[in-house]
Design a binder for these strands. Sequence first.
DNA 1: GAGTGGTCTAGACCACCCC
DNA 2: GGGTGGTCTAGACCACTCG
Lengths: 236, 236
Amino acid sequence: MLKYEKIAEDLREDILRGKYQSGEQLALEKEMCAQYKVSRITIKRAVDALVSQGLVVKRRGSGTFIKSLKDEDVKELGMANQFSGFAATYRDRKVETDILRFDIVHPDEAVAAKLQITTEDFVYDIIRVRKLDGEPVVIEYTKMPIQLIPGIKKSVLETSIYAYIEKKLKFKIQSAHRTVKADMPTAEEKKALQIEGILPILEVEQVAFLDDGLPFEYSVSRHRGDRNVFRSVSIR
Amino acid sequence: MLKYEKIAEDLREDILRGKYQSGEQLALEKEMCAQYKVSRITIKRAVDALVSQGLVVKRRGSGTFIKSLKDEDVKELGMANQFSGFAATYRDRKVETDILRFDIVHPDEAVAAKLQITTEDFVYDIIRVRKLDGEPVVIEYTKMPIQLIPGIKKSVLETSIYAYIEKKLKFKIQSAHRTVKADMPTAEEKKALQIEGILPILEVEQVAFLDDGLPFEYSVSRHRGDRNVFRSVSIR
DNA sequence: GAGTGGTCTAGACCACCCC
DNA sequence: GGGTGGTCTAGACCACTCG
């Protein structure tokens, strides 16, 4: 592990363990330099990581201070703005997957454009329902170019496509661009998500990229509005 | 303007102007050092800014490459993960504000906890409907501690609270922690937002912080589901 | 092996805060 | 005036990619 990563993790654990009060001042950068025996820039990188996680604020001329947060917000913060698949996000709960569709088709113009391929290429066309502890929470529509991500099988869909891409194909996932909106479920979705009466959908449309800059997935995840939220922290 | 900011802006404009193709390689860091006459770390900071905006990817051993994005995604990206008030976000359109409530009250336990004050303190209790080009798009419920943000008047609510805080009070806004979810409008909200029939709400709950780490605003913005989306880019 | 970006150093100067 | 974090430098070594 890199020095600045290690230091950032140490500090983060101290904060989450409640070592500091709301608004309390952290050790000075100079002090941390001595404590960890590293240069000031390395300390700065570590503390900047905490700033972008929303845990602390820096004040030039004064020092670095713990942000005044409710505990529940603090605990969720590690996940905000993060990138991970469904299975990884809920790895402490019972996750089941129903595969409603698994075909190979040509993409339409819009999807082809987002995946930077042509309508002549082939993509997987996947529809899955994800359940937590037996309750359906989200229906995911996924399209991936087969030329980029070969060898997807039913067993992969039942667990995690991301784990397959990173562990089997040895690719690295770099980022995801997301658009979130509210919508109403279709009749089919109401059935698949076991929705009775009127309940809205939280839709997350996503284009995901490998670390070579190529888009490898276009997906639309439509979540039951009563069982999901989307978190983010923005700085500055 | 700082050197790395200036360089990042230059590069960003080049990309948005279409100087590069999807996947094309940028100048090497060493070349940029010579071109801008700065050190390599300064170049690195500038290029890292583009990475966090989702515009490029870096590959150790190879170079830096333009990400393969659809144009509309690229153009929206500057706004994603950014922090600004309603008026600033839509400054090229006609913005109107209806003030439905403007009182001073004691906060309940939940709000007091989020604002790090007690239920004995006072907060502004504000409800506003925002309109774009005459059409209502969002109803905002705002609570702010009067001890931290004094002197709010009706005229401030009609334009921008954030502009008042930054320009009149000379405070700096540091960050916002947000939770997004889908919901259905209440009967009052349907009336205020001129919703007929069944239309969901995109709710953004937010705690905003000043640069001294103190929370100064708790707000819930409930947007018409057909007129708003929420964007984000997550890296790694 | 040549070349890329990643990390880290030791030190300088600056803008800002508080006493 | 003394001390804080912010920016920037010049240079070193490392991990990785590619021919």
